[in-house]
């Protein structure tokens, strides 16, 4: 893995890289296989989903999750984990359904404040060397508290323009696919294509080298947190555009789902890796599983257990495939 881009380094052609990643067994292959299997089961259950409308309904819930997964991927690429993502997305939906509608300036200021807080978190984690898990877990309660203060019970209404985004249905192609592709492209640009992406991954894999190369570790980590915060805000806004209301608990399962999506897509916990396509595939798979579970009319009590078991099973599958690959 390259750390910083040397001046005379020439990237291999896209085809060469794609071929190599297939030959080496891309980490995202497992997630792709899981996606195909889940999709096949869904079609067998409900043949109607093979249409633009069907796919739209099926994939809609995955859209915010994909953006959140890209955010989690950026955080995990620098070796951290964000445990506050679910509560924060809930808070963004609350802000979208209340402040953003009533006084847009205050609403936008709140959303910007979230990004600033994330920059501070990055600063704290790097400067004070505190575990990101605990800091973000603590922050999740702050988000929850703020959300409850603004909107104690689910409700409110999203602004017109946001609802319009949620209602947007292009001809011939399911809208969620457009959003998912955009999210992946953004994640791919941020983490793989741009120079800052190399810096983020270098911070996760070898901070000492990054520092010797003349980059500020603090700035790099703050950058990762800020980029993640922006993606989280987008994810929350998209979720609000679909539900058209605010609920602090609407995304509580996103925390586990995003981490699982990143790991499913080939990411790891020690940092240094960012696989945006894998993360998207993982998020779509997990989102589809949720939809599938409700399609299969599984008792609502059992749904969370099924989700937990599936996440464990998929992660187990990854261990097994990695062992065979070696």
């Amino acid at each position: 893995m390259t750390t910083t881009a040397p001046t005379r380094y020439v990237r291999p052609a896209l085809t060469t890289r794609a071929l190599t990643s297939v030959l080496h067994g891309s980490p995202a292959l497992l997630s792709l296989t899981a996606l195909v299997v889940v999709f096949a089961i869904s079609i067998a259950n409900q043949p109607g989903i093979l249409s633009v409308t069907g796919l739209t309904l099926m994939l809609m819930s995955a859209v915010p999750l994909v953006f959140a997964a890209q955010a989690q991927m950026l955080i995990m690429s620098v070796g951290d984990i964000d445990l506050g993502i679910g509560a924060l997305i809930g808070l963004v939906t609350v802000i979208a359904a209340t402040l953003l509608n009533e006084s847009p300036v205050l609403g936008i200021a709140m959303l910007l404040a979230i990004v600033v807080v994330y920059a501070l978190l990055g600063l704290i984690v790097q400067k004070r060397k505190v575990p990101s898990i605990i800091v973000t877990l603590g922050m999740s309660f702050v988000w929850l508290g703020v959300g409850l203060q603004i909107l104690p019970t689910p409700g409110g209404a999203t602004p017109e323009w946001l609802t319009a985004i949620g209602r947007w249905r292009p001809e011939g192609i399911p809208a969620p696919i457009v959003f998912i592709v955009i999210a992946t492209a953004v994640g791919w640009y941020l983490s793989r294509q741009s120079r800052m992406g190399s810096r983020l991954r270098a911070l996760g894999s070898n901070p000492a080298t990054l520092e010797k190369a003349g980059w500020s570790l603090v700035q790099t980590r703050v950058l990762a947190y800020v980029l993640a915060a922006i993606l989280i805000v987008i994810s929350g806004l998209l979720l609000a555009s679909q539900t058209r209301s605010g609920d602090i608990n609407s995304a509580s399962n996103f925390t586990l789902m995003t981490i699982a999506a990143v790991v499913l897509g080939g990411g790891n916990f020690s940092g240094g890796r960012a696989l945006p396509i894998g993360a998207t595939l993982g998020a779509v798979t997990l989102g589809l599983i949720t939809v599938l579970l409700s399609l299969m009319s599984l008792s609502s009590s059992l749904q969370s257990a099924a989700q937990g078991a599936i996440v464990l099973a998929v992660l187990a599958g990854r261990i097994i495939t990695e062992r065979f690959a070696r």
Binding site: I124, I134, V135, L137, G138, M139, S140, F141, V142, W143, L144, G145, V146, G147, L148, Q149, P152
Partner: peptide, 12 residues
């Protein structure tokens, strides 16, 4: 809500 905020800030 306020109690949650304080708790979270305290932990951090």
């Amino acid at each position: 809500g306020a109690q949650n905020i304080l708790k979270g800030v305290l932990v951090v």
